[in-house]
Deep mutational scan, measured.
Amino acid sequence: TYVQALFDFDPQEDGELGFRRGDFIHVMDNSDPNWWKGACHGQTGMFPRNYVTPVN
């Protein structure tokens, strides 16, 4: 499953995934309602669910 970033996200903690608005992120785990795990630009980490939108 892929999502697209609605906003820039700069990691604040180790293990978070940084990205820029418009980036596509491969979702690896969406079991938590607020923080998902994904991959983008060769990196993996957690990111806030409300920063992304589903891609059809």
Results as ranks from 00 to 15, higher is better:
Thr1Arg: 07
Thr1Cys: 15
Thr1Ser: 09
Thr1Pro: 07
Thr1Leu: 04
Tyr2Thr: 12
Tyr2Cys: 08
Val3Thr: 05
Val3Leu: 04
Val3Arg: 03
Val3Ile: 03
Val3Gln: 03
Val3Pro: 03
Gln4Pro: 00
Gln4Ile: 13
Gln4Asn: 05
Ala5Glu: 00
Ala5Lys: 00
Ala5Tyr: 01
Ala5Ile: 02
Ala5Met: 01
Ala5Gln: 03
Leu6Tyr: 03
Leu6Cys: 11
Leu6Asn: 08
Leu6Thr: 05
Phe7Cys: 14
Phe7Ala: 11
Phe7Arg: 15
Phe7Asp: 08
Asp8Ala: 04
Asp8Val: 00
Asp8Tyr: 01
Asp8Gly: 04
Asp8Thr: 06
Asp8His: 05
Asp8Met: 00
Asp8Gln: 05
Phe9Glu: 03
Phe9Ile: 04
Asp10Gln: 15
Asp10His: 10
Asp10Lys: 13
Pro11Trp: 02
Gln12Val: 08
Gln12Glu: 10
Gln12Asp: 10
Glu13Cys: 05
Glu13Tyr: 11
Glu13Gly: 13
Glu13Thr: 08
Glu13His: 12
Glu13Met: 13
Asp14Ile: 14
Asp14Leu: 08
Asp14Pro: 14
Asp14Glu: 13
Gly15Thr: 08
Gly15Tyr: 10
Gly15Asp: 06
Gly15Leu: 06
Glu16Met: 15
Glu16Val: 09
Glu16Gly: 13
Glu16Lys: 15
Glu16Asp: 11
Leu17Trp: 04
Leu17Asn: 02
Leu17Ala: 02
Leu17Asp: 00
Leu17Gln: 01
Leu17Pro: 00
Leu17Tyr: 01
Gly18His: 13
Gly18Ile: 08
Gly18Phe: 04
Gly18Lys: 13
Gly18Ser: 14
Gly18Asn: 10
Phe19Val: 02
Phe19Glu: 02
Phe19Asn: 02
Phe19Pro: 01
Phe19Asp: 00
Arg20Glu: 12
Arg20Val: 09
Arg20Phe: 07
Arg20Met: 10
Arg20Lys: 14
Arg20Gly: 07
Arg21Met: 11
Arg21Ser: 11
Arg21Thr: 08
Arg21Lys: 15
Arg21Trp: 04
Gly22Val: 03
Gly22Ala: 04
Gly22Ile: 00
Gly22Thr: 03
Asp23Phe: 03
Asp23Arg: 01
Asp23Glu: 09
Asp23Asn: 05
Asp23Gln: 06
Asp23His: 03
Phe24His: 10
Phe24Asp: 04
Phe24Gln: 15
Phe24Asn: 06
Phe24Pro: 03
Phe24Thr: 15
Phe24Glu: 14
Ile25Lys: 00
Ile25Glu: 00
Ile25Ala: 00
Ile25Pro: 00
Ile25Tyr: 02
His26Met: 13
His26Asn: 14
His26Arg: 13
His26Tyr: 12
His26Gly: 10
His26Lys: 12
His26Glu: 14
Val27Asn: 00
Val27Phe: 02
Val27Glu: 01
Val27Asp: 02
Met28Asn: 07
Met28Trp: 10
Met28His: 12
Met28Gln: 11
Met28Ile: 13
Asp29Val: 03
Asp29Phe: 02
Asp29Ile: 01
Asp29Thr: 04
Asn30Glu: 12
Asn30Ile: 06
Ser31Met: 07
Ser31Gln: 09
Ser31Pro: 03
Ser31Val: 07
Ser31Asp: 13
Ser31His: 15
Asp32Tyr: 03
Asp32Gln: 10
Asp32Val: 02
Asp32Leu: 09
Asp32Met: 06
Asp32Cys: 07
Pro33Lys: 08
Pro33Phe: 15
Pro33Gln: 10
Pro33Thr: 08
Pro33His: 06
Pro33Ile: 08
Pro33Trp: 06
Pro33Asn: 06
Pro33Tyr: 13
Asn34Leu: 12
Asn34Lys: 14
Asn34Ala: 13
Asn34Glu: 15
Trp35His: 08
Trp35Asp: 03
Trp35Pro: 00
Trp35Gln: 11
Trp35Asn: 06
Trp35Cys: 10
Trp35Ile: 05
Trp35Thr: 12
Trp36Asp: 01
Lys37Glu: 14
Lys37Phe: 08
Lys37Trp: 07
Lys37Tyr: 15
Gly38Val: 01
Gly38Asn: 01
Gly38Asp: 01
Gly38Phe: 00
Gly38Ser: 02
Ala39Ile: 07
Ala39Gln: 12
Ala39His: 14
Cys40Arg: 09
Cys40Gly: 03
Cys40Tyr: 05
Cys40His: 09
His41Leu: 07
His41Cys: 09
His41Asn: 12
His41Asp: 12
Gly42Arg: 06
Gly42Ser: 07
Gly42Val: 02
Gly42Lys: 06
Gln43Phe: 08
Gln43Ser: 13
Gln43Met: 15
Gln43His: 15
Gln43Val: 14
Gln43Thr: 10
Thr44Asp: 06
Thr44Cys: 07
Thr44Gly: 03
Thr44Tyr: 12
Thr44Asn: 09
Gly45Ile: 03
Gly45Glu: 00
Gly45Lys: 02
Met46Asn: 11
Met46Ser: 10
Met46His: 11
Met46Cys: 08
Met46Pro: 01
Met46Ile: 14
Phe47Glu: 02
Phe47Pro: 00
Phe47His: 00
Phe47Leu: 03
Pro48Ile: 03
Pro48Ser: 04
Pro48Leu: 07
Arg49Thr: 09
Arg49Lys: 09
Arg49Ile: 05
Arg49Gly: 06
Arg49Tyr: 05
Asn50Gly: 09
Asn50Pro: 07
Asn50Asp: 07
Asn50Ala: 10
Asn50Cys: 07
Asn50Ser: 12
Tyr51Glu: 01
Tyr51Gly: 03
Tyr51Trp: 08
Tyr51Pro: 01
Tyr51Asn: 05
Val52Ile: 06
Val52Leu: 02
Val52Ser: 04
Val52Thr: 07
Val52Trp: 00
Thr53Met: 13
Thr53Cys: 12
Thr53Asn: 08
Thr53His: 14
Thr53Lys: 15
Pro54Asn: 14
Pro54Gly: 10
Pro54Trp: 12
Pro54Ser: 09
Pro54His: 10
Val55Phe: 11
Val55Gln: 15
Val55Met: 07
Val55His: 11
Val55Ala: 11
Val55Glu: 10
Val55Tyr: 05
Asn56Ser: 11
